[in-house]
Every structure is written in structure tokens, then in C-alpha cells.
Design a protein around this nucleic acid. Structure first.
Lengths: 245, 245
DNA sequence: CATTACCCAATTATCATATAATTAGACATG
DNA sequence: CATGTCTAATTATATGATAATTGGGTAATG
């Protein structure tokens, strides 16, 4: 049989086939359309369903397995893993989950974690930051004061600020939490770009505390920043703010 | 050409070829043998190196890419991502990293995070735990009192205890941190199984606090447990304790 | 009846090969 | 210098085999 070139019908098939299969199955699993109890389609059937070759399906399966969403074994086939097994901190999984949960709940969970991590991270930064780390935090803050509040540059600068603090904490695991924060900031800005302007000064206070090498102040100011942001955004989310996309 | 059956020469090739390639490349990347600057071998060369077909190599590449270790693009080929991009919370990555770092440093990082997470998790558990959650924590503790301190059952019971507390916090992201804790406990027990017996009573105090619905006490007792464990184990690690394997 | 040993069919694992799609970099052109 | 065009390198996808694994059925055994 001659090779069937892949035809992109219907909606713009921008990303490649592999990415499409991964995302489609990933979101279905997280939405609960496919559960550990349901029998999962075998590779051949998945291939038919997506109009993809077995190669693509298998690669997608490996990708999802690496994220803890599924498991694939000889003879048994593929099965969905229980939610406790999912790598929720994986950026993809995080974003799929964001699309599948009520925003208020998602945001609530996210901030609960941020509140555990970031105040202490700020304190560590105040203790351990090198001059270059502080310079980076300061630069990020300077950028925040310049950008247009409702541009994506605002999100970038904000993220840069928070990441720089994590980096200054000199703990690789800590730094990794940047993914979580990125999603948190994204939601914040999507929900209300006003928040950026409102909480800009508090960012400055965090910077000052770190600069002053004052761990307690760093912890307190960061905690205040997060608590107030959470309250602000949660209020907006509850007022029937729907998200784009 | 007729198909070459795969021959397992040399050391026992227990896991399948795919898993072997993933682990080999993964550890090499994390050890720094392959950096973002080095040119990464192309699929064909990897296939030759491992004596594997392109399919297996590609599946391994997708698996590593899902963990944020590498990126693969048409024409550019494969490249190692900078460490900040790695999904360090992924259980595999975590364990590879454990094998590639000085134990004291690894343990230090790990406990810094545990200290951010678990005391607050215990406090949340004291507030939110359902009766069944408390029963599970209690049962785990009961099991801890029964098992032989230097058995793997001890690790299991210990992990069960800590996981149950996370679960009682009613935050999926929190629960996810169980992976981190698992590795932490594993190291603790490997380093000194005495720690299990020494800190058993303090576990009981945490349980009591949660049972009493006293968030502050839960936080304090958990914090004490972690701090003392860290001190105890770090001391042993510095005394030239080498790990197995 | 219970337990063990064996076999079979289902499913993934691996291999081999061919073609399609993408794109970095070279090169030409203005 | 900027911009467009071409080409070769590399991954992306497809196809069709064969190998390896194993859950569950079935027979043999005690």
C-alpha cells in the first residue's frame, strides 16, 4: 500500500499530529472522560480514531505515561492511572487541569501552594541572594514599572520577578515551582489586569526587604502580596468572570 | 532484511529496551554528561549506540521531552534543555538526580521544601480532615508502631502516614508532593533506620494535634518532627555514610 | 475442591524501511 | 545590509512485519 499523506481537514491542524493526540487524550483523561475503570482503547483503535499511525499513537502514549496519566503494559493494554498519580506540577498537566476545573477552585489550590512556598522563598532569598540575584530581581521590578499593565509583557515581567526570587533561594526544587507561579500569574492577569497596577507597590516592598537582607520582612511582605492578590482575584472570579478561549 | 531479535548481552537487561534508553539518557543528562551546548546525537546514531530501532529511540526521546529534559525539533535535532526547565518533581527525574548529587545537598534541598509544605499541610489537615481521613492517618500510625523498624514495611507505613496528612489537606497539588516525601523518607531510612524509632513518638503528637483539630499544634509538631529528622539524618550523612547501589 | 502447570490469544514491544514535512543555513539577489 | 530562494539534514509519519510478555483459561495433579 502506498503511504497515505496526512490530510489536515476541518479546523486548522496547527501543531503536529503527535502533539494533538497528546493534548486530546490528556485533556480527556483529566476531564474524567476516561477513567481508570473504563477500558482504554488499544493502540490500533486509537490510530483509527485519530487517523494516525501506530508510531504516533505510541509516542503519544509514552509522553502521557511520562506525565503519570496512563500506564501501558504488554497484554494488559493501556490504562488510566488514578489522579493521585498524575504529575500535576507538569506544565502541560497543570494547564489541562486549568481548562477542566472551575477557575475559583483551581486558583484556590494554586494559591494555597504559592503561600506555602513563596514567603519562605523570599526569606531564603534575603539570606542567600548574590549581588547578581538581587540585580535581577531589581531589574525585573524596574521592567514591571515600565510595561503597559495589560500587555503580555506585564505577565512576563511579573513572572521574571517571582522567578528571580525563587532562583535567589538557591534551591533547585524551589526554582522548579516557577511553573506553578507562571500559571497563577497568567490567571491573575487574565482575570483582571488591574491587579498588576494595584499590587505593583507591594512587589517593591518585597524587593526592598530582600535588598535589606531582612528575611522576616521578606517573608511578611511576600505573604501580604499573595494574600491580597488572592483576595482580589478570587473576588473577580466569583463575580462571573469567565475566561477566554 | 530479516528482523534481528534483540539479544540481551552482558549485564542482566531486566527492564525493556525503552526503559533502559530513557534511564540511560536521563541520568547522563542530569549528571551533566550531556549539556545544552553539546551537540546531541541524532536518532540514527542513538539507535546504533543502544542497538535499538528508531522507534524505541523516538519513544524514549518523547518520554524525556515530557519530563522537560530535552526538546526535539525537525531539522534542528535533539537538544538538552537547561536545568531550570527540568521537571524536578517528576519521580524519575527526582531519583536520577538523587543518584547524581552529593546526598547531603540533595537531602538539604528536599527538606527545605518539605518544611515549607508539610507543616502547613498538617494545619490544613487539622481544619479539613474528614473522619475517614483521620482514621487513615491513625491507621498508618498504628501500623508504624507495629512494623519492624528496618524493614521496607517501615518506609511504607511512614509514607502512608505523611501521605494521609497531605490527602487530608484537600488540595490535589499538595497531595502530589507525596512523591517528594517518598524520596525523602527513603533516604532517611537508608541512612539510618534508627530514625524511624527515634521519631515515632513525634508522629504520634502530630496525629494527636490533627485529631484535636488544632491547626497551630499540627503545624508546630510537624515542623518539629521535620527539623529534628533533618538534623538527625544530616548528621549521619556527613559522617561518611555512603548509600547503597 | 484446591493448586499447580501449561497453553493460547491479545496486546504491546521492537524492528525495518520508506516517504513526508519542516527548517537552519547557505547562497543568491536586490 | 536586507530579503528571498534553495537545499540538505533531521525529525515526523506511515506501514507492515515479527518478537516478547502475560492474563486468563484449561488441563493435570494432589
Amino acid at each position: 500500500m502506498t503511504k497515505q499523506p496526512r490530510l489536515a481537514l476541518g479546523r486548522a491542524q496547527k501543531r503536529n499530529l503527535f502533539a494533538h493526540v497528546v493534548e486530546d487524550l490528556g485533556t480527556r483523561i483529566i476531564k474524567g472522560d476516561l477513567t481508570p475503570d473504563d477500558p482504554f482503547p488499544i493502540e490500533a483503535d486509537l490510530g483509527r480514531e485519530f487517523g494516525a499511525s501506530r508510531s504516533v499513537i505510541r509516542e503519544a502514549v509514552k509522553s502521557l505515561a511520562a506525565r503519570g496519566l496512563i500506564e501501558s503494559k504488554t497484554r494488559t493494554g493501556i490504562r488510566v492511572m488514578p489522579p493521585t498519580h498524575w504529575n500535576l506540577l507538569d506544565p502541560e498537566v497543570l494547564s489541562w487541569r486549568y481548562g477542566a476545573m472551575p477557575p475559583v477552585q483551581f486558583y484556590g489550590e494554586l494559591f494555597e501552594i504559592r503561600l506555602m512556598i513563596e514567603p519562605q522563598a523570599a526569606a531564603l532569598a534575603a539570606e542567600r541572594a548574590h549581588a547578581s540575584d538581587i540585580a535581577e530581581i531589581a531589574e525585573a521590578f524596574a521592567e514591571m514599572t515600565k510595561v503597559s499593565p495589560n500587555s503580555t509583557a506585564a505577565i512576563d515581567a511579573d513572572l521574571r520577578f517571582h522567578r528571580a526570587i525563587l532562583a535567589a533561594g538557591k534551591n533547585a526544587l524551589l526554582h522548579q515551582m516557577g511553573h506553578l507561579i507562571a500559571v497563577g500569574l497568567y490567571i491573575s492577569h487574565q482575570t483582571s489586569s488591574d491587579s498588576f497596577t494595584v499590587f505593583l507597590p507591594q512587589h517593591g516592598k518585597v524587593l526592598d526587604a530582600i535588598r535589606a537582607r531582612d528575611p522576616q520582612a521578606a517573608r511578611r511582605t511576600m505573604e501580604k502580596l499573595l494574600n491580597e492578590t488572592r483576595e482580589f482575584i478570587t473576588g473577580h472570579l466569583k463575580n462571573g468572570r469567565r475566561r477566554a478561549k
